[in-house]
Design a protein around this nucleic acid. Sequence first.
RNA 1: GCCACCGUAGCUCAGUGGUAGAGCACUCGAUUCGUAAUCGAGCGGUCGUCGGUUCAAGUCCGACCGGUGGCUCCA
Length: 642
Amino acid sequence: MIEVRLPDGSVRQVPTHTTPREIAEQIGAGLARAALAARVNGQVVDLNRPLDHDVELEIITERSPGALDVLRHSAAHILATAVRSIRPEAKIGFGPAIQDGFYYDFEVDRPFTPEELEAIEQRMQEVVKCNDPFERQVVTKEEARRLFADDPLKLERLEELGDDEVITVYRNGPFLDLCRGPHVPATGYLKHFKLLSTAGAYWRGDEKRQMLQRIYGTAWFSQKDLEEYLHRLEEAKRRDHRKLGRELGLYSVHDEAGRGLIHWHPRGGLIRYTIEEYLRRTLLANGYDLVFTPHVANEELYRISGHIPTFVDNMFGPIEVEDETYRLKPMNCPNHIMIFRSEPRSYRDLPLRYAELGTCYRYERSGVLHGMMRVRGFTQDDAHIFCRQDQIGPEANALLDLVDIMMATFGYAYRVFLSTRPEKAIGDPAVYDAATEQLRQVLVARGVDYNVDEGGGAFYGPKIDIALVDALGREWQGPTIQLDFMLPERFQLEYTGADNKPHRPVMIHRTLLGSMERFVGGLIEHYGGAFPTWLAPEQVRVLPITDDVRDSAAAFVAELKAAGLRGTLDDRSETLGYRIREAETMKIPYMAVIGAREAEAGTVAVRERGAGRKQDIMPREEFVARLRAEVEARTLNVPGLA
RNA sequence: GCCACCGUAGCUCAGUGGUAGAGCACUCGAUUCGUAAUCGAGCGGUCGUCGGUUCAAGUCCGACCGGUGGCUCCA
């Protein structure tokens, strides 16, 4: 007999080799029907896996965390089953569950066609209908070698397994895979899924190895979830910053001018200007100094910094001038170091915080360029803080205050990650760990929920990474706080301490918004193009109903401008409906309609973006005052934003 | 850079070997209108580029250029 402890704290005595399914059946028929897998001492296993010692057991159902991963991993096997039946020669690679779905990699003579994808999906339906059980079997390495004799990719993986590892294979109907599991009980459990796309993917993610053909799919427990996910994909497409960027006249990219180089149009420029102006004022109010440094630098600078040779593959090529070689700057830190080093520094001067909206250029391979998100020229919201070791904590704390302000202003939720010392770290491990501990204590003191990426820090220092969560629930790389013990060393930075001796400062690289290109690109998608009033390039469109009130409307536009608001007059000879439609399409926050009644009374009929026919008639001054208050408060009046 | 798909007017797209099309946008004219498309006319394309097959190529084939989705890499 063994003891099984359940999540509610109860303990059951059952015979050795009882399976989780049997226990679920004992608890209730409903639970047995809902059971997909089990969590035994924290590890997810199959329902039919016999228990041979005392355990803590949790039955996994659709609602359990991790349940979708099990389903999706099984979906990947079902996909491979279907592919094998259509293309028997396909060699199988890996097929894991991923965020929102699953994939499977195949080595095939010719890539899959879109039509084939449909056929594969249909064949998957047949596999599901068979409802074959997923059967786990423990095998020896020798047996496994025989079973996968025709699957070189599996053999390669097999040989990496240690001799003491338990090797398992899973069979469902005709398909056998080397796999750790677990799986849902049978193929019939997969009901709501869809294949999405094919893509090339290097075997083991190594571009020196052969390219496999990957098939992506998604799977859910209910048709509703599947449809919601597909709808989310549609919504993401609708909000694509490249599409909205063109439609709203924000930016463009030109072959003639160079790929991956953003041309900010007047509307996009106004958005960027407004953000930059707000950012600079915030930084000045928070103890930062603004600096400006050149776009090119003598290559020597990057030899000292070490970017040559480590970063040279990401840099634009050399520029020869007289006898010297210059480079477009890939980052701002060496320049800021020059400013720090330009005079002797005292411990009393520290911390020094140099901020720059610094434009950098990096060579990115053509295949990775993507709208404003991945470009070759970008302007970083960059800053470097030079401080004493004992100032790391307070500086990190102040930075997290700024992060809070910025994220709240733009309406982002966020998640925090702390990355600790990797194996290959430089310098004294004690210094690295002490600094990491300072960061950790700051996070703890602030009551921040954070995840630790053990060994995920850079070799030159630990860091705090912040991931933005946008309106669609997607995560983006956000602010980072990166400690650096290396550059002060390489540039021999010093300050004079209270002991009148030279000391080495610590550098903190930090960004709040990342690059203006990426940040604004992200904002376009976050807001779906409907920028809050304070950021909207055009805040009010004034619409006179007839030519008779044109002058009155023009006067109102002048009043808006005088109040520092961005209003424009649309007095074209088009119907009111037409002009309203266009203002809605351009996602302008407010329309101010002026007809004979309003002109007479000194009022405007205000129509808010996205609010339909609802109108609010108010005195002109009141509307101006309301708008000014809204701009000042940076109100997030974005439809659909929580 | 690699794999797949795509490339027709400023935009969205139709056109399966036989004389390049539509809607929107733009220009002109008419219309003066009460909350998401007023009517008419006009302008606009060497069908991504180069080569090949064919009596004939937007259409079939090849190469190249560019875009998209991935891979790899990153602000």
